[in-house]
Design a binder for these strands. Structure first.
Lengths: 219, 219
DNA sequence: GTCTATAAGAAGATAGAC
DNA sequence: GTCTATCTTCTTATAGAC
């Protein structure tokens, strides 16, 4: 009687190692393709060819092209969340934006994906619109919290809440805009231009008490 | 003998009034469609339907989809050039960026087209890439000329050429980035946020001597 | 100058074999 | 879990009638 159990696996194989690996490969490839050609411009065939499978395998994993996009967005968001510094408060948060830019410069696909999908999703019927809207709101909200906290701690000159929001929006706008310039023309000195601009902003916020500290030497 | 000439038209009818009008209609529709769906995502079918003709009529006028894109870009560039103030020099040029933003807010399609195509054309094989690259270089160059002229005239604090370029890039980055935020979330106060940020920058450039003058009342 | 008709291909998605 | 094969729809582009 108990012998029947021997035909069953002893361990739960679960989501299957191969499937997980393949799924990750597909998401990474789809991120590249969507970043380069947009969601509308990228095709399941291109992605399938990069991965080395047929388009049918993709719809098996993700149901539809839109399902694949959702997976790409979730993956991107989770990665960004992982890199988001946890124990940093107030002005230090903005200092670390320079590190984010350095990371983005080394991972061009990330900013390409964000900017391509953001511009594309300005159309209300775009499947990524809600995601992009919510993500940007979250980013602005986090920035607002950190800058108003710094203000309340007396680390900055006085700004009312409207002013804080304006400053935060301007910083992220400058960040996105410079990254766009760099995408258009890769010879643009992204890190240098951003660092200098951010430093000037920090000095203005703090009445000159604080600028951007030099980067730790890579060695 | 001379009677044969009567079968020929007396005047050169030229590009035909109807054709010119239709051509403009097509370009305007294509601008909207490409702005909303990107170049890859927008189809000749959509454009033809908006105009009220068949896709075949479009390829008659513009040879191919890429030809239509070129026409859209040329049209957009010509319009932008028309609005570019001629007799304004130095710092006044940057003051007028606020008017550009106000115009863009009332003509959402223009900035949508620019940002969508810019992000899309980060791919080297995109047909609009060269155009976008050259246009942005031109914009940055013009800004550089005006700010360095103001510096040489003693209207600003001292900045070396690298600093001037950084400041110009940062201003346009902030401008593009805010417009992107506004595209993503139309409740963003585009004009107000930009005006305040630009005013702060002008004050910094001039050591406080100059801020953004109030807008002329619309009445 | 615009139409219909159609070519030639690529798109997303599904069915069923293995 | 991935394949082949196929369906339907949509793409750009062309040919020729009106």
């Amino acid at each position: 009687m108990t012998d029947t159990s021997t035909t069953e696996p002893k361990v739960i194989r679960g989501p299957y190692q191969n499937g997980i690996k393949r799924r990750r490969e597909i998401i990474e490839s789809a991120s590249r393709i969507f970043a380069s050609y947009g969601y509308a411009g990228g095709s399941l065939r291109q992605i399938a060819e990069e991965v080395g499978v047929t388009p049918a395998a993709l719809t098996r994993h993700f149901e539809s092209k839109e399902g694949l996009l959702s997976a790409v967005l979730e993956n991107w968001d989770a990665e960004a969340e992982d890199r988001n510094p946890r124990d940093v408060r107030g002005l230090d948060y903005f200092v670390l934006l320079r590190d984010a830019i350095i990371y983005n410069q080394a991972n061009r696909g990330l900013i390409e994906l964000f900017l391509t999908l953001s511009a594309e999703s300005s159309n209300p019927s775009h499947p990524a619109r809600e995601f992009i809207q919510e993500r940007y709101q979250r980013v602005v909200h986090t920035g607002f919290e950190h800058l108003s906290e710094a203000r309340d701690a007396g680390e900055t000159i006085w700004m009312d809440d409207d002013k804080v929001l304006t400053e935060v929006r301007a910083v992220y706008a400058m960040m996105d805009g410079l990254q766009l310039q760099w995408l258009i023309d890769p010879t643009v000195d992204l890190v240098g231009t951003f660092s200098e601009s951010l430093s000037v902003i920090l000095q203005r916020w703090t009445g000159g008490a604080r600028a951007l500290p030099p980067l730790a030497a890579s060695a």
